[in-house]
Design a protein around this nucleic acid. Sequence first.
RNA 1: GCCCCCAUCAUCUAGAGGCCUAGGAUGUCAGCCUUUCAAGCUGAAUACAGGGGUUCGAACCCCCUUGGGGGCACCA
Length: 520
Amino acid sequence: MLCGQERNCESSDTVLKKEVQMTPTPARVRFAPSPTGYFHIGGARTALFNWLYARHTGGKFILRIEDTDRKRFHSDALQDHLQGLRWLGLQWDEGPEVGGDYGPYFQSQRLHFYQEWADWLIEQGAAYRCYCTTDELNEMRDRQRATKQKVGYDRRCRWLSPAERAAREAAGKSWVVRLAVPLEGEVTFHDAIRGDITYANAQLQDAVLIKSDRWPTYHLANVIDDKMMKITHIMRGDEWLSSVPLHWHLYQAFGWRPPVWAHLPVILNPSGKGKVSKRAIQTPSGATIPVFVHEYQKMGYLSPAVVNFLTGIGWALDGETEIYDRETAIAAFDIHNIQASPGAFPTDKLEWMNGMYIRQMSTEALLSALVPFLSEQLGVEAETLGHDPRLRLLAPAIRERIKTLRDAAPLIDFIWAEDVPIPTAKDLVPRKTTPEQTRVILAAIIERLQHLCEWSEPTIETALRALVGELGVKAGQLFNPIRVAVTGKDVTPPLFVTLAAVGQDVTVQRLQRALAVLTG
RNA sequence: GCCCCCAUCAUCUAGAGGCCUAGGAUGUCAGCCUUUCAAGCUGAAUACAGGGGUUCGAACCCCCUUGGGGGCACCA
């Protein structure tokens, strides 16, 4: 039917190199999730690469919902995908909620296309109805395994005579449609990332195209939709590579020219062993981190950081620059410098990168990002927090101490706590200092701070530094007991701003309480 | 088991036959800074899986081995 000469033009590297140099023609690419589960971080990478390529070429990023698996359908999954894509800023040009000229974009609304084309394939002799039941197939496979034969559909229904078919139809037997793949020969197709790949047809199965419920399988639906939606490049996970020969034969049977295939390397666990899990990622330290996009959002990762991070798995801007915005990535992105080799999910790098993005935020931006997290973690009204001058005072100090937005609360919870734990003498007395020395120092501090007229970071600093000189002690001997007494912690944001935020009355009161511990 | 894909520091990666005694980043370690913790700065250690070819020359091309991954459903 088709089309050797058309295929040839894709399998030549020289042509590909020319394409790189030319201004790219606008691509139509798609992200085609199945709403059987939540939006996975690996899926986000696939979506992102497609989106980058669409933007790079000035083309279209299409969102298509592959909801043909009715058994595993989850009603929340679709919204989770839409929400996740929006959070990442990967707005689609055609698809659910935005429409487009090639809809509908839900496969469940396109069933008639698949059925019509399947019938057409049967008429052409490229496909056939198979009447085998699940039980029969299982039995067949069991027997194949027992006799150590190759496991796979034995094509028994492919060779049925018209009379045999008529009998089965008359008996009302249920059926599926299978593709009649060539028994001999081989198929060579081109992958933009991997080059030419050859499969022996003998390895292929007569795959099911239409299930007994009359719904299509992925194989049929994706080929028809990609054609009808004028998809130019298929960028999807590596796990699809081995079904390309099947799709190739479908394109062949339809007489259509296939899009460019580009199979992205899978993301492996951080250990480098095994594909990243569908549920949780195991870090080398034994902890687990989540895999769903909405979980990253909840954990206080920033969407630009996640996007930047994800671009770096399987692709690199220039091999030097790590932090860059999406416009920079769009300008440089190309299918031909996507890696072929699978890569582990570098969790440490995500942490670092998120911290970098947080540190680049303005105080104002940080504050508004932080408030929902603090509100939830500290149990304080968001409205109240948003106007709290103490938070504003502390924001610059916590900015360089957190890797995620969720890290902030434990750092500054003493501000909103009803009370902080009463420190023990052991906590209050620094190394190389006696309890008696600390008692004297604390008393002097109280005396000094109590009478401070203006309570602010600089005035507190001036007063306390002066005291260090007057008492002839080391800075730490004076500062550390204050920290512990006032916050109940030995690790806090810088002391002076912390005291300024806590307030004069509370500071003095907590210092007195600590002094009592040492006196009593 | 069969088929396909892949192979540069622990990890993400740069590298298109000479620019490579292999570059960047994370992580690790050390130093500086310092009121704690961070951040920042400086420095250090760590890689072309192994073996054969091809070539004047190979991390880059070919083959084999090994290792890793994916697939073999009326799931996508």
